[in-house]
């Protein structure tokens, strides 16, 4: 049992949860993920680590309340427990001195890009963080991201904060920066990562994405997380979740992600409280 220390809606529909899980915190590296279960017999929910504190033995994740299982997570309060917190899983993000790195986060990816940006900064890179959102009221963690980046770029669809635009304007954002970008890292929904990768392809900038495929065990046992990368099948949970965005078969990723959409809706068709 893992005690919840904090669980709150930080912007509409995005939640940040902090949990006591010392062993996970102890081994955590940037870009790794955990699997939660919100209740006994519950679904296994993969979530990227957004922060951790080895001393305090805590980990932090951000999630979007989208289906039955995340809805259940959202009802939990500090002091309650989760039956499962397992991790850290997956390979960590490659951290090295690359030069200037652009870290793009949207939705819960704003949170999950944070430890990656922090590690890149510590490794001596110039870090530029781009926060992408529909509107200014969906932006959070500005202070945390600012503390680990040399420059912060806001990109909102309605222009209420920073540049007006969306992930499809990424190439333009990169062109207007005063420095050459050596690497791009994209975190967020599959659409953001796909669209962002399309933007950087013609610019020939190495681009890494953190895939959020369907998963069950997260240890390479079931294979539901299969993705085709460079014409080869990979298991996102153990071979990834980080892949070259220019080599991912995005049509397949999108299709596989939708496999259980109808079933995920069935349990929501109820007035019974979660």
């Amino acid at each position: 049992m893992f005690t919840i220390l904090e669980n709150r809606m930080i912007v509409p529909n995005v939640f940040v949860m902090r949990v006591q899980a010392p062993e996970v915190a102890n081994g955590a590296l940037p870009g790794q993920f955990v699997i939660f279960r919100a209740e006994e017999d519950g679904e296994r929910i993969p979530l990227t680590l957004a922060d951790w504190d080895v001393q305090a033995g805590t980990i932090t994740v951000a999630y979007l309340n989208v289906g039955r299982s995340t809805a259940k997570l959202a009802t939990l309060r500090a002091g309650q427990t989760l039956p499962t917190v397992v991790g850290p899983l997956g390979k960590p993000m490659e951290i090295d001195h690359f030069g200037s790195v652009l870290c793009v986060g949207g939705c819960y990816g704003i949170a999950s890009i944070y430890p990656i940006a922090r590690a890149l900064k510590e490794a001596g890179n110039t870090v530029i963080c781009v926060m992408e959102a529909r509107s200014s009221f969906l932006i959070y963690w500005q202070d945390k991201l600012r503390s680990v980046s040399d420059r912060l770029v806001y990109l909102t669809r309605d222009g209420t904060r920073g540049k007006r635009g969306h992930i499809g304007s990424l190439a333009e954002v990169i062109r207007t920066l005063p420095m050459r970008i050596d690497r791009v890292i994209l975190n967020g929904c599959n659409y953001l990562m796909m669209r962002g990768s399309q933007e950087t392809l013609p610019l020939k900038i190495k681009t890494l994405v953190t895939l959020n495929t369907l998963m069950i065990d997260g240890t390479g046992m079931c294979g539901v997380c299969r993705v085709t990368v460079n014409a080869e099948t990979k298991f996102a949970c153990v071979d990834g979740p980080h892949f070259d965005g220019h080599q991912v078969d995005w049509a397949e990723v999108t299709q596989r992600r939708k496999a259980y959409l109808p079933e995920e809706i069935i349990p929501l068709r109820t007035t019974r409280p979660f």
């Binding site: 046992m221 294979g223 299969r226 099948t233 596989r256």
Partner: peptide
Amino acid sequence: NNLNGVYSANE
């Protein structure tokens, strides 16, 4: 093999 509806026995 990566079409939807294709499973490993484990899954």
